[in-house]
């Protein structure tokens, strides 16, 4: 076993977390859990950003994470407001019942 982990370990961890997030979006029907899965995906990307910042010795990765976190906060606020609004009209947050876009 090597004495310290390198960037590849983080890539592996990050891709596993990302895949779990993707599966959450594709498999779950509860819109709130869908959002949580999106957060998980963002988070796995963040982890990789920070790992690369450490790997390359540059601060930019951390700055980007800062932006991602900010955007995520905005996204969740708006998304949850949307969910609440949809729930009020449709009495459901099952995304399979929200198919008004059907052509």
């Amino acid at each position: 076993m090597p004495s310290a982990v390198n960037i590849n370990w983080y890539i592996a961890l990050s891709s596993i977390l990302f895949t779990i997030g993707v599966l959450g979006v594709l498999l779950r029907r509860n819109a709130i859990i869908l959002f949580m899965s999106v957060e998980l995906m963002l988070n796995s990307a963040n982890l990789l950003f920070v790992a690369f910042a450490r790997h390359l010795g540059q601060l930019d990765g951390q700055v980007l994470v800062f932006f991602v976190i900010t955007v995520a906060a905005a996204e969740v606020a708006v998304g949850l407001a949307l969910i609440v609004a949809i729930f009020r009209t449709k009495k459901s947050i099952n995304i399979d019942e929200i198919n008004l876009l059907k052509g």
């Binding site: 957060e39 982890l47 920070v50 994470v65 800062f66 976190i69 995520a72 906060a73 969740v76 949850l80």
Partner: peptide, 30 residues
């Protein structure tokens, strides 16, 4: 992990924003 990766600021922001605000918001809506 962030702490271990020499990113203490991001680690604290992660806890404050994600754990302290975003998930609380989730719980709130649930």
């Amino acid at each position: 992990f962030y702490l271990a990766l020499n990113a203490p600021f991001i680690a604290m922001v992660q806890v404050t924003v994600y754990a302290g605000a975003i998930v609380v918001l989730f719980l709130f809506v649930i």
